[in-house]
Structure formats: C-alpha cells, structure tokens
Design a protein around this nucleic acid. Structure first.
Lengths: 226, 226
DNA sequence: CGTGCATTTGACGGGGCTCAATCGCCGTGG
DNA sequence: CCACGGCGATTGAGCCCCGTCAAATGCACG
C-alpha cells in the first residue's frame, strides 16, 4: 500500500504532470512570507518517510495529509491529520521522526529547511513563528496522548468534536478511512465502526454516508469527551 | 494529594527556608548561559499549574519532576518525567498546558520567559536552542503516544528501557511511585505491579526493593519493546 | 508495637480485540 | 442494463487482557 521511493521530493509526487516549479511567494507561517514550491500528491502517495533527512518543511494547501509512525511489528500510529493551512514536517533533528502521506489528492507548499533556518537567524519574527508552530504541535501531541487513555466512546467523541472544530462545521466530510481513524485513536476499525453506529443509535450523530458524519447532539458528545 | 496554590512561584516552594535568591549565572540550554534563580521544592510540591501564566522556564538541577494533565473526571496523565539536566515548562502559549510537581526533594533553575525571549531575539543561537528543545519535547511526546498503543508488558518494558537509558545504568533507582508509573503508561498500579513481578519471574528483571529495578535481560526487554 | 502508606496479590467481570461473514458502493465489462 | 469483482465498512460470536474491587503484605516512622 505504501509507495516507497528513494527520492522523497521528486518521487513522492503523484501522477499529475509536474506543477509549475516556478518558485512562488506564498505565506508559509501565518503572516510570514517565504519562497516555496507547490507540489501535488495523489492519495496514499508518500510525501516523506521516517528517518529520511528533513530538508524541507511543508504546508497543506488543499487536500489532507496524515503523519504516522510504524512499530516494528507493523502497528501504525497516526500522530496527526493535517488539513489545509496546517504546517507539518517541522523537525529540529536531521531526520524526520515520522512519515507523511497524502490522504487524498493534495497540494502542498514546500520550503527548504535551510532557507527557513537562515531566515530565522536574520528575522526574530520568523524564529518566533518557528518556535510557536513547534510548541503548538507539542500541545497537540499532548492532547493526542490524552485521547489514548480514554475509553473507545470517549476517543471517538473527541475525534468527532476535534474534526468538527477544525472544519468549523457540525457536519463533517471525513477525508480518511476507518483504518486511519482507528490508527489515530489507537483502536481497531471494528471498534470505531461499532462505536459510530452506537452513537447513531443514540441519535447523537447521523451517518448519511460512511464518510459523512452529522453531529446531532453536541452536548452529548461533550459529555462523552469527559 | 495535590497542593494547589495561588502563587505558583512563591507558594510552590517547599518547606525549606528560601534558597539564596541571588541571581546566579548558570547554563540553561546546553552551552547557552542565562541568568536564573535556583529554587527548592519538597516532594509533591507544585511547581506550576495547568492554565497558569507561563512566565518562567525551568531546568532540573537535582531531584525529579513530573508534568501531567488531568481529565475532567480526575484521571491523570503524566506527560513526562524530568530528570537533572532536563528543561520543562517551555510554552509558546500564554498559559501552561500542564501542571508540574516535584516528585521528591528537588532543586530547579528558574528563568524568566520574557528574558529568554528577549535574548532569543538578539541571539540566533538562543532562538535555535529554544526551538531545538521544543522540537525534542515534541518527539518525546510522540514517543509517548507510541507507548500508549502497546500492551501492558510492552509499555512497562519500554518504560524500564527508557529510564535505564536516561540514567545510563542497568540498575535504576526509580524516584516515582507505582501510581506515577501507571499514570505515565496509561495503566493501573495493579497492572504495573503484576507486570513487574511477571518480568521478575521470567528473570528479565530483579526487584531488590520496590523502587530499585535491575535489568537482568536487556534483549528480552527489547523484544517486548516491540 | 501500632499506625499509615505504598505495594503486592487474588478473584472476577467487562470492554475491546480477533476472527469471520455479510453488506454496500462503485467501476468495469460483457 | 445487469453481472461481477474489489474494496471499505458493518455486524456477529467468542475470548482475553486489563480494570475493578478487595484483602494481605511490607516497610518506615513514631
């Protein structure tokens, strides 16, 4: 399923013809502008792999991305889902600590790490942004750890509320499969599925389609979120 | 059990008489020097609380510290143990995302956040260190998430290897209680205790005292670490 | 010796995992 | 137009790991 490639930039690309590699000026970190290149990825295409040199930093422009780590026995833990506007691949170490794949067709802004670091040395504002983004990722990772000690119902409820919050809507069109959700929540697909139908039975949510979820009773979800 | 106080700096102190508040020049981030104040805390004394303004950054000089978050129903998740040399309380947001308590009698170097940020603006090296430390904490948090999807045996084995690695010894004198370990691993004290005796039965470890653990068969632990 | 706390040990039940079958959706081709 | 195959998702049955509740043990300290 994973498309492993040697060259993580060129080969990670989707089947689309090369997007104009014209360096474009685009906002990478909120109000800060850094030169970058836009790239397109097919669903399930690898953007970078764990252990590869972290030479670039990425920002989702469209579509969605998952970052994950694999245990030696094959279990996969999805550390985060990245939606448009999110920055990922921010590493201070030489190598990436996790892999990244496009979930569906996605476009990503790519910036050279060395360029960013050089800019940070000259511009305190960039350095602060760099730090802020990393600190935010840290807090999100801690939030994620809190998820993993909860019951299955609580994890699913938290996930739904998180997604609805990030998409700022009470009806979410999930880009990811049940397996992705399960690997994010530390559950099995069966448990995720059962919990969703259970929530539907309690009229807490509605499932018009497997990827579409309508939050009917937000307070009930908040109660489960514990 | 928790000692809640209003003033997180003055009141967080232990019962010791005030340590010389003489500002001392001490290394905070590796090779970087920043002025700071040394403080002493008793075991279980609060250093700072979740939601409090993050006006200071801390570095353990002696003893050990736990940072944790509490769920609304009282469950506690210990996000990290901090040993001498470790920096904690590094937040980019205004408020702390977690609480910190001394595990045993501990001395901590305290640095004003505003001072550190001002220095970072002038010194790119300090800014880089700030970022590196936060990125390292992020990776550790991700490692911790990987823990939480493993089985009880695997979690305990990972914990023992982590502690032995950080103390660079194959016999560890644990500063924390079983409850602390359980809340770090997302297990109950009973499961932690049972797993330890089980590992002892398999001659993988030895338990001369409840807080002292000798690693007898490191490869067996690595196998369990999965 | 007695008290208090941390830890261990035991018995039991349940939540979530495993294995397996079925369903639903969609694209493909006869 | 329908049959077929493939994949994701759902549903079911059974079991096991770990949480819960409870009691016993060990240890430090007065």
């Amino acid at each position: 399923m994973l498309i492993r490639t040697g060259n993580h930039i060129a080969a990670g690309r989707g089947t689309q013809p090369a997007p104009s590699s014209v360096p474009s000026i685009a906002p990478l970190f909120d109000s800060i502008e850094l030169a970058g290149v836009t790239m397109a990825f097919d669903g399930n295409a690898e953007i970078f792999g764990e252990g590869e040199p972290a030479d670039y930093v990425y920002k989702v422009l469209s579509g969605s991305v998952r970052t994950y780590r694999i245990l030696s026995d094959g279990r996969r833990q999805i550390t985060a889902f990245h939606l448009p506007g999110d920055v990922f691949g921010l590493e201070s170490a030489e190598d990436h600590s996790c892999s990244a794949e496009a979930i569906n067709q996605a476009t990503v802004l790519v910036v050279k790490r060395s360029t960013m670091l050089a800019t940070a040395d000259r511009e305190p504002n960039v350095a602060r942004q760099l730090w802020r983004l990393t600190a935010r990722a840290l807090r999100q990772s801690q939030d994620h750890s809190m998820l993993l000690i909860k019951s299955a119902q609580e994890r699913v409820a938290s996930f739904l509320l998180e997604m609805a919050g990030r998409l700022s809507a009470s009806a979410v069109e999930l880009p990811m499969t049940r397996q992705d959700i399960a690997d994010y929540l530390g559950l099995t697909i069966e448990t995720v599925s059962r919990t969703l139908t259970q929530l539907q039975g309690a009229a807490t949510i509605e499932l018009p389609a497997s990827r579409r979820i309508v939050l009917r009773n937000r307070s009930a979800l908040n109660r489960l979120d514990s």
